[in-house]
């Protein structure tokens, strides 16, 4: 009984720089953690997991966070649609036939100039969507799918001057007894001290955060109908407009370091995820 060896080897090839002999693993790609061009940092849904037993529509409010430092303010056309797509995770194609078109505030536009005071990085206008009767929506699907969650997708398409960016947020519809909630990132600390705005000091400093809550326990149904207890595993991504954070993505037991390039205050953003759709964003700006 063998798994796809080539896929494992693909991973291993990523992991094993035998190529170090040539430095072949080096690339000149832009870093995912450096702010500059248009980025979507996160989409926070106030209810990341919806009760699949609910017999009435459920409202969910979603707040996209963007960063557009280089453009320094422009107006985006924003189109939003939503649909149930249980097969999204199979091939990554959005396969819903009749997506629900949602109305975004301000006539489907957003002015990023409103984020000037926060280094053109921050929350867009929130949008509230209504998920139709979830119990009807997921009726017929297997108990395993219903328990573990079926994807209800919400897609945001931003466009400005020909530049486009699309982001998909999946709201899980699940019959779990205890539904997922968002983690909370309360504060960002440098060398253990709270900072009210973007850091200004130079030198390498410990970069950490405080979270009042703790990873939630939840259950997963296996294919044989049995359940497995699991605990969330937080992952934090740091974004910054200057200096360097390394590593820029960490697990709970890991630590990042921040090093400024100069003493001017910069933007620093922490995004905390529970890997189940729950997310929180903390932004420090000059």
């Amino acid at each position: 009984m063998n798994i796809s060896k080539s896929k494992i080897k693909y991973l291993v090839r990523l992991a094993i720089p035998l190529l170090i002999f040539s430095g072949c693993s080096n690339n000149n790609f832009k870093k995912f953690s450096e702010l500059g061009d248009l980025r979507i940092l996160a989409v926070v849904a106030d209810i990341p997991e919806v009760d699949g037993n609910s017999t009435s529509p459920v409202s969910v409010t979603l707040t996209p966070y963007i960063s557009d430092v280089t453009a320094a303010g422009r107006i985006f056309n924003v189109n939003v649609f939503s649909c149930l797509d249980p097969s999204f995770s199979q091939l990554g194609d959005v396969g819903c036939d009749n997506p629900q078109v949602e109305a975004y505030p301000n006539g489907n536009t957003f002015d990023a100039g409103t984020l000037a005071a926060t280094n053109f990085s921050g929350a867009m206008d929130a949008i509230t969507i209504s998920i139709p009767n979830p119990s009807v929506l997921i009726a017929g699907y297997s108990n395993q799918q219903k328990h573990n969650g079926i994807s209800y997708l919400v897609a945001f398409a931003l466009e400005s001057g020909g530049e486009e960016l699309t982001v998909i947020k999946s709201i899980s519809i699940s019959t779990r007894a205890v539904l997922n909630t968002n983690p909370v990132i309360q504060d960002i600390l440098l060398d253990g001290s709270s900072i009210g705005s973007g850091p200004t000091t130079s030198g390498e400093l410990d970069l950490t955060y405080t979270a009042p809550g703790s990873p939630e326990a939840y259950s997963e149904m296996l294919s044989d109908g049995s359940f497995e207890s699991r605990t969330e595993s937080y992952v934090t991504t740091w974004f910054y407009s200057d200096g360097e954070v390394s590593p820029a993505r960490i697990l709970e037991n890991q630590k990042s370091f921040y090093e400024a390039k100069n003493t001017s205050p910069i933007g620093l953003i922490g995004v905390l995820r529970d890997r189940r759709g729950g997310v929180d964003v903390r932004i420090l700006n000059p």
Binding site: S6, F88, Q90, S223
Partner: peptide, 18 residues
């Protein structure tokens, strides 16, 4: 992990098989 080799489906997106 088991998909076609020409598919670049991210590991974080693909269905979790249990």
């Amino acid at each position: 992990l088991f998909g076609d080799d020409d598919s670049d489906l991210p590991f974080g997106l693909a269905e979790i098989l249990t």
